[in-house]
C-alpha cells in the first residue's frame, strides 16, 4: 500500500514546514510606505517572509520601537527628528551605504546625508531619506467659502464639531506654539499652562482625532467636516479627493511643519543585510514612484511637479521633552478637564 506509506511522509513534511527557519523581515512603517503588492514582490524576490506593522503617530512609533529595545522590528520608517531621537537612544545601527546601489538614483539633496540634520552621527549614516511632506490644512469647499490662511481656524468656534485634528502629541504642541506665534519645538515651563489650555480648547472644538489618513476619510464621509489638519499633507488630500471629497489644501501663514521620513535599521535586528536590501528596494524607481502616484507624497528620486509652493516649511526638530508632551497629550485626549491638567 504505497499510498499509506506516502501519507505520513507528506504529513510530516507538511508539519515540518513551519519549523524551517525562514528569514523574516519586520517592517515598522507608515501607511503607504510598504504596500502589500510591493512587499509581496520583495518577499518573492528574496524568498523571505515580510511583516508590515503600520503606525499612525510618532508616539505609537516610539512606543513600538522602544519596547524590548527595538527587538520587534528590523527596519523602520521615521522622520529625521525621530531618527535623531532613536539614534540617541541607541535603538538604531548605521546603514552601510555601499549596500544601497539605488542611492545613486536619489536627488542630490537627499544623497548628502551629512547636510540633513539628524541622519549622521560619528561619521555614520543612520537614516536613508525616502519621502517627505508638509502638514497643511485641508478644507471642505462646500462649507468653507474663503480658504483658511491660519492655524487659528482650527480653534474657530464657527467650525465647532466640524474639525478633524491629528492624534499626535509632539505635532499638536508644536502647532499650538506656531499658532501662538512662538517657537514650536521648545516650550518654556512658564508657557506650558497656556499651551495646555489651547490644546484643550482645540480638543473641545474638534469632532474627533484621527491617526491613520484613512480614518480621516471615513470621518469626512460620515460627518459634516469643514477643516482637517493634514498631518499626512498631500497624501491625505489625494486620499480625500479619490474618495470624492470636494476639498482643497492650503499651507497656513504661520508656516507648515514639514517632515522627511527615512528608513533606519534597528540595532537589535538579526537581519541587517535583509533590512538594507529592503531599503535599497524602496529606492527602486518603481517602488518610489508608486509612493508618489498612490499617496501623493514626494519621493527622493524626482522633484515634485511644479516645485514646493510652501511659503515656509518648518522642518521637524526634536522637541524639548517629547516624553512630557506625550504624557500630557495622553491626558488631554483622554478627556481630562483643564483644571485637572494644570494640577501637577
Amino acid at each position: 500500500m504505497p499510498l499509506r506509506q506516502i501519507i505520513p511522509v507528506l504529513l510530516l513534511s507538511l508539519l515540518s514546514l513551519p519549523l524551517q527557519a525562514e528569514p523574516l523581515l519586520r517592517i515598522l512603517a507608515w501607511p503607504g510606505y510598504a504596500d502589500p503588492d510591493l512587499v509581496r514582490v520583495f518577499a518573492e524576490q528574496e524568498d523571505v517572509e515580510v511583516e508590515v506593522t503600520l503606525v499612525g503617530s510618532d508616539d505609537e512609533l516610539r512606543q513600538k520601537l522602544s519596547a524590548d529595545n527595538g527587538s520587534h522590528y528590523d527596519v523602520i520608517a521615521a522622520n529625521t527628528s525621530e531618527i535623531r531621537h532613536f539614534t540617541e537612544q541607541q535603538l538604531l545601527q548605521p546603514v552601510r551605504l555601499d549596500n544601497l546601489p539605488n542611492r545613486n538614483r536619489q536627488l542630490r539633496q537627499f544623497r548628502q546625508l551629512s547636510d540633513i540634520p539628524g541622519l549622521f552621527k560619528d561619521g555614520e549614516a543612520y537614516g536613508i531619506p525616502y519621502t517627505y511632506g508638509e502638514m497643511g490644512l485641508i478644507y471642505n469647499r462646500d462649507l468653507v467659502t474663503t480658504p483658511p490662511d491660519s492655524l487659528s481656524s482650527l480653534w474657530d468656534p464657527r467650525w465647532q464639531g466640524q474639525v478633524l485634528a491629528y492624534d499626535g502629541s509632539s505635532h499638536n504642541f508644536s502647532l499650538t506654539r506656531l499658532k501662538l506665534g512662538k517657537p514650536p519645538f521648545t516650550i518654556p515651563q512658564a508657557d506650558l499652562g497656556e499651551t495646555l489650555q489651547q490644546l484643550v480648547a482645540l480638543r473641545r472644538n474638534v469632532l474627533g482625532f484621527y491617526s491613520l489618513p484613512e480614518e480621516s476619510v471615513t470621518l469626512y464621509k460620515r460627518h459634516k467636516v469643514a477643516l482637517i489638519l493634514a498631518n499626512y499633507g498631500r497624501q491625505q488630500l489625494k486620499l480625500l479627493r479619490d474618495a470624492g471629497a470636494n476639498v482643497d489644501y492650503v499651507l497656513p501663514r504661520e508656516g507648515a511643519l514639514a517632515w522627511l521620513d527615512c528608513w533606519a535599521i534597528s540595532r537589535a535586528t538579526p537581519q541587517r543585510r535583509l533590512a538594507e536590501r529592503w531599503i535599497d528596494y524602496s529606492l527602486d524607481p518603481v517602488v518610489s514612484r508608486a509612493l508618489s502616484e498612490r499617496q501623493g507624497l514626494g519621493n527622493t528620486l524626482e522633484p515634485l511637479p511644479g516645485g514646493s509652493n510652501a511659503p515656509l516649511l518648518i522642518w521637524l526638530e526634536p522637541v524639548e521633552n517629547a516624553q512630557q508632551r506625550a504624557q500630557l497629550w495622553q491626558r488631554i485626549v483622554a478627556g481630562e478637564r483643564p483644571e485637572n491638567l494644570t494640577r501637577p
Binding site: G161, G208, L219, R222, G335
Partner: peptide
C-alpha cells in the same frame, strides 16, 4: 468626580449622539 473626563471627541460619543 475629578477623574471624569470629556469624551465628546471619541467616536463612541459623537457617533452615538447623532
Amino acid at each position: 468626580a475629578n477623574s471624569l473626563g470629556e469624551k465628546g471627541h471619541f467616536p463612541y460619543v459623537f457617533e452615538t449622539l447623532r
